[in-house]
Design a protein around this nucleic acid. Structure first.
Lengths: 230, 230, 230, 230
DNA sequence: GATGAATGAGACTTCATTCAT
DNA sequence: AATGAATGAAGTCTCATTCAT
């Protein structure tokens, strides 16, 4: 029993150290930025000597990546799904807003993930990549369901739609992270949702509405005239 | 006269030196990559000593950036506009294809611009940024014209459309530059053009307000017919 | 009695520990080589923590040396003498072959003894030195006997003959341990035995010279007397 | 002309530096030994900063090896051949004495060559190896000539004789370098020359001096008989 | 006696930049 | 204007050894 307690006590400080170092790293990163942080800074901040850091982490990059992943994960952890949100458009908006809000909250972290981790070939094996993937997968799934329900056309690959959404998001996020421009969460999320939903909307199936049918007639006429112009 | 000749002689080699160093830098970068290139490599390649480099460039980064800009510029230089291409869709496709082909041709260069220069706050002041901007501007202009002509709706900002296009392009380009996936120039350009044109189309294919769309479209047609009468 | 039992219990595992560590060290050395082996490797292999090693060994070198000595000793242990082998030449050949075969069997071990332990001043106090000495002593003894029997001349010190033999052996062994060349056990043993026995041989081979033949007659007589001595 | 002078002046300090560093290294090695010498020690001794050392040497080992080679070379440089020495025995004695005297003069240097450089696979490509080889080659050549002239038998390979000589020499040298025992240059050189010349002597002559040998042997026998009588 | 985390000195190496010539 | 050697700070990583529990 004593031994068990001892073991527990013996184990705790180690977990504590690891946690201390990671927390110190986070603070140091926030203070000096990823590119300027030195092992010595982190060790000092954690009240540990440089060598100790290497008991817990293979090398500097390993430390940085693991800190980032944990940090990243914490922020993603609480996210719930979109199954209880009604409408494709709203689902997409929700997912986009979630990401944009996260970026706003942790710019330094996102900057590192985007600029340092993603270029690394090893990124694909990281937890951050898995989480990133989960996000894009959620979007893809929403699109897939919209296609299945007939709400979206099926003549374009889901991957393209996904890239339009995340590409645009990242474009804005990059500009923001570089300090080149701010963005409005709702404006961006709504705008993208609008274009995507419009662009992927299935053709109207025709209807009894007289206005709609008149419109359709005129539209057909316009199309013929347009053809003549070409 | 003698002094003038001397000056000329003194000046010419200097231009030559500058050109030599920049060319050498380009070769060195191609050979070792941006992150591994050293001033010493470049100097040796240019048959100059390390110190000389600092007569022409403030520091290493300045050299790298200026080399990149010139390199970038050369590739962009020959690009003609899209005024002689018919149809918004074709114009957009053309601009997108041009970018994608360039990326394919100079991956190392594009990688640096995307990953190293863009994160830098000073990027906004660089020529590379200006050229980048020109590209996006061309796309924006095409969209603006499409809106003016009634082909595109006007209920969403041009900037959003631009970001959807470039964001998606860059998303694909990044994956490619990281070695994570190839892309097909036409497939990407066509796909994006399709979603954007559909999503922005003023035509009443079951859009938000068919009547408004039809009206808009007919108005635009009328305008063009009037143009023909002139 | 209880205390005695406790002591016994306390002592036994300790012997076991020591043996475990030494065995682990041997395995680790075989796997990584003497120069790359770390205390941590050995401790892990022995299922012990680093600190425990220091209960049994003063420091790293002490561990390495003691392991080597035990290892060395085991290999030498079974060696029987040369008293039952007939002829000086055969005795020498046997001793040389024994050494060469050992080197072939345990190159890593011999490399360490030759390169690491021997340079150390403390080597003279080590068991490995004692064993080494025993080997050379056996050779010396054979030579001494050959001198006593009149088979070898006595005008040169035994130590020189010993060094010629071991020096040459080690010369070949070194080349082998450095990977610079193989050797043939019998070729080397036979060759050295030949030169040494010839070079030290007391017998004249007879000739037409009356002096020589008289000498020969006396020599034969001496040989018979020598036989009687045995 | 001014430029030539400038160039010369510009070049000199560099050679000077190299020489300074190498001289400093030699001093530092002499003072602290090869294994304990640090780059910082050498740099300080040469009145240079650590980094400067790396302009002239790839890394620490490169520095050590090159210093050693130059040092080694200087000592070997003045050695003349043996063509003007009469007699195989004298030639061999001369070559052996030369080596033994050198070892006595520069023990630290020889220790490094023997213990550090020789184990390295790259040793075969070093200048020290070439010089070493030259030495052994001289001995081999003497033996070869003795064989050609009929002075030495030809039933054993020259390589074996060479190894007997150098093996024995190194055996003694090692003991000396380890501080385990001194040696007498002449005693060793004479002894080895004696055994080798006897062992390799062609039969026809019945040995160097059969009478002397027989006398010696009978004397030894007489002594033993006298012992028995006691 | 065992544990094993912490220590911390230290060593090597790199390279952008400077500056006397 | 060119040279290019010297600088020297900076930084990562290793590992034998200790010592409180």
């Amino acid at each position: 029993m004593a031994s068990k307690a001892d073991q527990d006590e013996g184990t705790r400080p180690q977990d504590k150290r690891l946690a201390d170092i990671m927390a110190a790293a986070r603070r140091a990163i926030r203070a000096k930025g990823y590119e300027n942080v030195r092992i010595a800074d982190i060790a000092k901040e954690a009240d540990v000597v440089d060598g100790t850091v290497y008991r817990y982490f293979e090398n500097k990059r390993d430390l940085l990546v693991r800190v980032t992943e944990a940090w990243f994960e914490e922020n993603i952890a609480g996210d719930s799904g979109v199954s209880d949100i009604a409408g494709t458009r709203n689902k997409l908006r929700h997912l986009m807003r979630r990401l944009l809000i996260f970026v706003r909250k942790e710019p330094v972290l996102n900057r590192f993930v985007l600029m340092e981790m993603r270029p690394d070939p090893a990124f694909r094996a990281s937890r951050a990549f898995a989480m990133n993937r989960r996000m894009t997968e959620e979007v893809s799934e929403v699109c897939r369901q919209a296609m299945a329900s007939g709400e979206f056309r099926t003549d374009l690959p889901v991957a393209l739609v996904r890239d339009l959404i995340f590409g645009c998001l990242e474009h804005r996020i990059w500009a923001f992270l570089r300090g080149e421009g701010d963005f409005d969460v709702d404006e961006v999320a709504d705008g993208i949702a609008t274009v995507i939903c419009r662009g992927m909307a299935a053709r109207s199936h025709g209807g009894a509405d007289p206005l709609a049918s008149a419109t359709q007639r005129l539209t057909a006429l316009a199309a013929r005239l347009e053809d003549l112009e070409r």
